[in-house]
Design a protein around this nucleic acid. Structure first.
Lengths: 86, 86
DNA sequence: TTCGTAGTTCGTAAAATCACGAACAAATAT
DNA sequence: ATATTTGTTCGTGATTTTACGAACTACGAA
């Protein structure tokens, strides 16, 4: 729970997850264009999201596709659902 | 959203909020007994929860009663509910 | 008034976070 | 073979977080 919450504890990461929650997958480049941060900074945020388990990345040709990690996403969802009594 | 998530990004603070979610109010001393951390550390966590808006403290005789800040709690609840599509 | 209780604030230190540019790796395109 | 695109990793700082003990404040009890 705290691990997932921590991962969502930064506006950029919330933004990314909201995007992924809608379209389930995206490329780092897409994010890079929309967000006013350095590529390396973005990469770091993606890494943190990956380490939290919320997302996973798969190589696809020249770029990397980031997707929600469904299993952990559902786990987190349940934890938060219970936490907020939803 | 990120602000609330960040506040919940530590096990001790999650514990405190889970407790408060059930009984709505508690004293720092109660927490101090249950948690294996220094009083000052606990005080800091409570301060962060206060600054995030999730709780509020009111002086009551010699001790301080911490309660859920209902308004912000509901706001956070809604934000998370929407975020997770619950 | 003096003591004990409850809790905060201060000072300190170690670790983690956030952000950037530069250098790098891997694949594709020219 | 060289250049371009895509993204990671490295090195560096500034800031924040986490944690502790010690000192302090405020209140009630003896």
């Amino acid at each position: 729970m705290a691990r997932y919450a921590k991962a969502l504890g930064h506006p950029v990461r919330v933004y990314i997850m909201q995007l992924l929650a809608n379209q389930s997958c995206c490329y780092s480049g897409d994010l890079s264009q929309e967000l006013p941060i350095a590529k390396s900074t973005l990469s770091q945020h993606l890494k943190e999201l990956k380490e939290s388990g919320l997302i996973q990345g798969q190589i696809e040709a020249p770029r990397i596709k980031y997707c929600v990690n469904s299993e952990n996403w559902e786990e987190a969802k349940k934890l938060f659902k219970d936490f907020w009594s939803l």
